[in-house]
Structures are given as C-alpha cells and as structure tokens.
C-alpha cells in the first residue's frame, strides 16, 4: 500500500512537470523558447493550465451516451494506475505481493482499451469513434510484442515478481544489470520500448488521437477535468512503462555506480532514499527519451503501424524468445 500511495502522489506531481518538460523539449528541438511567461522560465505554466482546466464546466453534449461517457475516463485512469500496484519502490518497499506480478500488470493495463472504446463510442462523434477504433487495433496488436519482450526477461531471471527481478540485479552496480549481464536482452528492450510508445498512444504511434486528422480522437468531446484525467492516464502509462523498463533491463532501484578500488561507491549510494532516487531517475530518463522520440519522428500511417507490429516486431520478439531460451539453457548455466 505504501508504494501505491507514494506513486499516486508522485504521478500527480510528475504530470505537472512532465507537461512542462514536454513543451520545453519540443521547444528546444524546434528551436523555440516554449512557455516563458508564468513563473521563472515558465515553470508554473502547467499549474496555471491546470487551474484553468479544473474550473471549466463539465460539458456533456445531448447526444452522448450518458453513463459510459462519464465513467470512461475513470476506467482508463483506474486501469493504468492499478498497474502501479505491483511496482517496487526500493529495497524495503515492495509492491503488491502477487506471484504473477508482471503478468498482472500487463493484464490490468490492457483494460484501458475498454475505457477508450467506451469514450469513443459514447461520444457519438465520428472522429471519436475512429480514434477509439484505431486505438483498440493498435493496443491489441502491440500487446503481443510487449508481452513477448517482457517474457524474454522472465525466461532469464526466472521470476514474474518485479521486486525479485530487482534483487537479482543488485550487488555490484552497473555490471549486474540485466542488459549488461545478458546482452541478448538489448533487442527485447528495443521491442519493449517501441511497443510501449504504441501502448501509451505516443507519437509516432499517436494515431488514436492524431490532432491534425481526428482533432484529438477519442477525447474530442471531452473538456475540463475529464479531459484532464485522460491526459493524466497517458502520462501515467508513460511513467509506468518506463519504471517497468528500468526494473526489467536497467537494474531497478540499484545504484549504477561501481566499486573503484577502495572507493565503494555502490554501497555509498544504496539505501532506501537512494533506491527510490535511482529507480525514478532511470524511469524519468526513459520518459525523456519518449518525449525526444515524439518530437523527432513523424506519425506512422495505419497500415505501416500494423505491418510494423505484425510483420516485424512480433516475429522478431518470437525469435528473441527462442534465443533467450538458448542463452538461458546453454550459455549462462
């Protein structure tokens, strides 16, 4: 429970700064300044936007399907946030004690599709419907490569428990990380990262909400606080997948510093607070890469999106599953 309470607070603070960071990253990449007016270097811009947003009227059009329209954003957020329940925070604070923790997380976050479908259908608007249909096709397709790439790590570590996965990577800093100990995991990590972008509807896979064609996709009809919940869920998904990526491939809450001679930097930078710090820093670095990708690559077409998933990522991840099996059976034992 402690980790979940922490993640709820962290997520709320994270979203405020992530939106600011996103706009600043975009501005830097496009050679602009970005928000500069509110607060020092525009740091309070998101707070001002948030205040504006929660004061807005809760608009629902006459033709919407009332109950599904109102609960859809809540379903999306609950599905994403429930995924945080299995994440550990540091060596002392583990997540929910479920033997199939990672599997549970993948199962629960796949439920956010239901909320998106509900939103798109209940809005009674063709742009929303197209957006939610694209979203379902996309998320259902990319769940396969993401599941298989996670399975590659599970084969090597032999556990679905994220706390155990972190514990297996502790001891000597950087060199104990899965991706360094088992270089065969580099390709599964890339598959995981690409599919994660698609799962959280981020560019280059933001077809469900592509602003230029679908004016926002499934959340076209939403405004004010309910729209805010959709945004919160999207950033929550980015953070969730980044934390999972950091735990599976980059050592979780373990310090990256190694022992140099008599300087035991690893022990010096380990502990409860340090563990939390390392885990969140690694996750935020991955979030930054997601933003970087968003402002660098153009959006894919629907057919390119599908062929990327079904013709490249899925066969490649099945092949990697096979290679990881061989690695585990003969090369490291």
């Amino acid at each position: 429970m402690l980790s979940l309470a922490f993640y709820l607070l962290f997520l709320l603070v994270f979203v405020v700064f992530a939106v600011y960071a996103e706009r600043k990253t975009a501005a830097f990449i496009q050679n602009r300044l970005g928000p500069m007016e509110v607060g020092p270097r525009g740091m309070l811009q998101t707070v001002a936007d948030l205040l504006k947003m929660i004061q807005k009227e809760d608009i629902k059009a006459d033709a919407v399907d009332k109950l599904p329209f109102l609960i859809a954003p809540i379903i999306v957020f609950v599905a994403v946030f429930a995924g945080f329940s299995v994440l550990p925070l540091n060596a002392e604070v583990a997540g929910s004690n479920v033997s199939g923790g990672l599997f549970l997380m993948l199962a629960i976050i796949s439920l956010d599709v239901l909320g998106i479908l509900m939103a798109g259908w209940a809005s009674n608007n063709k742009y929303s419907l197209f957006g939610s249909m694209r979203s379902v096709a996309q998320i259902v397709s990319y769940e396969i490569p993401i599941g298989l790439s996670v399975l590659c790590v599970v084969i090597i570590t032999g556990t679905l428990d994220l706390q155990k996965t972190s514990l297996l990577q502790s001891g000597r800093g950087l060199i104990d990380w899965n991706i360094i100990q088992h270089p065969v995991l580099i390709i599964p990590f890339l598959i995981f990262f690409i599919s994660g972008l698609a799962e959280s509807n981020r560019t280059p896979f933001d077809l469900p909400e592509s602003e230029s064609e679908l004016i926002g996709g499934y959340h076209t009809e939403y405004s004010g606080f309910r729209w805010g919940i959709f945004m919160l869920s999207e950033y929550g998904m980015m953070l969730l997948l980044s934390i999972v990526g950091a735990i599976l491939f980059f050592g979780g809450w373990n310090s990256p510093l190694v022992r140099i001679g008599s300087w035991d930097l690893y022990t010096m930078t380990s502990g409860t607070v340090w563990g939390t710090f390392w885990l969140l820093s690694k996750a935020l670095l991955l979030v930054f890469i997601q933003m970087w990708v968003r402002w660098t690559l153009p959006r894919l077409r629907v057919d390119q999106l599908m062929s990327l998933s079904w013709k490249y990522l899925t066969p490649l991840s099945i092949l990697m599953l096979f290679i990881c099996g061989i690695w585990k059976l003969w090369l490291i034992s």
């Binding site: 479920v98 199939g100 599997f103 993948l106 199962a107 796949s110 439920l111 599709v113 239901l114 259908w121």
Partner: peptide
C-alpha cells in the same frame, strides 16, 4: 491468483474488447 489474471487478460481485456469492436 493466476486464473484471475488470465481471466482479466483474456476475457475482459481480449474477448470483450473484440466483441465491442
């Protein structure tokens, strides 16, 4: 536990969504 997870993944997350779709 495992049955519950599979139930969510396959039925709620898969079958129902394909049905609505």
């Amino acid at each position: 536990e495992l049955l519950a997870i599979v139930q969510i993944l396959l039925y709620a997350g898969g079958v129902v969504i394909l049905l609505v779709f």
